[in-house]
Simulated scan of single mutants.
Amino acid sequence: MQPLTEDRVRDVLVNAKHDERERLAVPLEFVLADWDHLDFFAWRDPRTRSRGYIVAELSGEPVGIVLRAGSGSGGGRPAMCNLCHTMQPGDQVALFTAQRAGDAGVRGDSVGTYVCADLSCHENVRLAAPLAPNEVRASVDRRIDGTRRRVEAFVERVAGG
Rank of each mutant, 00 (worst) to 15 (best):
D19I: 07
R49H: 13
Q92I: 02
T48C: 03
R126Y: 01
C116Q: 03
D109K: 05
H37P: 00
T86H: 10
R44K: 14
A79G: 10
G70M: 09
V63K: 04
R107E: 12
R47I: 08
H37T: 10
V93T: 06
H122R: 07
A104F: 00
G64H: 03
V66Y: 10
V125T: 05
G76T: 13
A153D: 13
R150I: 07
L58E: 11
N82T: 11
A101C: 01
P133Y: 02
T97V: 13
G75W: 10
A117E: 09
R143P: 03
P78G: 04
T97G: 09
L32R: 11
S73Q: 12
R126E: 09
E20T: 06
A98W: 00
V31F: 03
R126W: 00
Q92D: 15
L28E: 14
R68L: 15
E61H: 10
V93I: 15
Y114T: 09
V31G: 06
D109N: 08
R77Q: 15
R142E: 15
G76C: 09
L32E: 15
G146A: 03
V136D: 10
S73F: 02
F96H: 05
R47E: 14
I65R: 04
Q99D: 11
E22F: 08
L28M: 05
L28V: 10
R143I: 03
V158R: 01
G90F: 02
V151F: 02
D118E: 13
R150L: 12
L83K: 02
A42F: 02
V136L: 11
C116Y: 05
C121L: 03
T48D: 15
Y114H: 15
